[in-house]
Nucleic acid binder design. Structure first.
Lengths: 167, 167
DNA sequence: ACATGATACTTGGACTTCCGACTATCTGTC
DNA sequence: GACAGATAGTCGGAAGTCCAAGTATCATGT
């Protein structure tokens, strides 16, 4: 019986033990699954982006800027859209600016705000990197279109619950 | 935390723009959703664990040790089960040891191996902390039992695809 | 016996993230 | 007009992650 020698799913194993002591084993299993899924997606995309000197976070920032109407956004707006902390925006923009993919510009009316503008080099690397990201399929190659939408929809319920997005 | 109410769902907005240029918008939306879900779970659990001086990562390590037969495991085995880098295990055990929740012990046969053993204080704080974690429901309060299982099952397909777990 | 390679853990460094505190600037109210 | 409070961004520090390299120990083959 070689098949029986294969290791068990560690998450199912943890759930089995959890259920013997505490309530909410299904919740624990789902939470652990989400943590693990994030690692898989992150590793897959970071691997695809490595040749371009980008991380997932910096790549997302470039895509956001490229999508924006004027090719520039205030730092705070970026953090809002990317759902990251203001200090993380500072860090990301520092590095992208060092790589020549974005530049900081002063806002004409409000001297508190700093606009971040994508450069031609930034658009170029973003275009090339996107090919690699699409090719790696975000590490989600084994899900069908329907399963992808199901996953997105389930997580939207979580995000609605957290108050992040309206129902 | 970054949680704020936004006028539109930024993920749906990004998907709309993505679909105008590149293939795989559903994959991008699912990947982004997973990244965001992880942040929500992490923030929720870290918040619940703060009064006990624990992070999610350290809490998971304590639970793993408490679940183990002898209450102790080699460092490498911990990293394997928790799916984290060996240096992260060193870091986590350093801090847990500093808090008095675990202790390092030499392996009797293999002097390369370091066993990590949970202490009485470790079991105690783990028990109390688990109450808080169960109460916060891992930030997944708005999902039904069926939805939780659906989520776990979908992500299991991802994990199978990544080769982490057998079909 | 002993050389070679594998294994177990640690160290130092780079990177990312968050929090708290800080400066600079704008806005609304009296 | 002035001032209290809100807002925008940055800095320093803590925590966590990974990688590359290093030390110590074990296992294997001749």
């Amino acid at each position: 019986m070689v098949g029986r020698l294969l290791p068990l799913d560690p998450i199912e194993e943890a759930r089995r033990q959890w259920d013997q002591r505490w309530p909410g084993g299904a919740t624990m299993a789902a939470a652990t699954s989400i943590m693990r899924a994030q690692q898989i997606v992150q590793a897959s995309v970071d691997e695809a982006l490595k040749p371009y000197g980008l991380t997932f976070a910096r790549y997302e920032a470039l895509v956001l800027l490229a999508f924006s109407q004027r090719g520039s956004l205030p730092m705070g707006k970026m953090g809002e859209r990317l759902m990251i902390h203001p200090t993380s925006v500072t860090n990301i923009v520092d590095r992208l600016e060092g790589q020549g993919f974005v530049r900081r510009r002063p806002h004409e009316r409000d001297r508190r705000t700093t606009l971040v503008e994508i450069t031609d080099a930034g658009r170029e690397v973003m275009d090339e990197a996107t090919g690699a990201v699409v090719a790696c399929r975000f590490g989600l190659d084994f899900l069908s279109e329907a399963q992808l939408d199901q996953l997105t929809s389930l997580i939207r319920a979580v995000r609605v619950g957290s108050g992040e997005v309206p129902a």
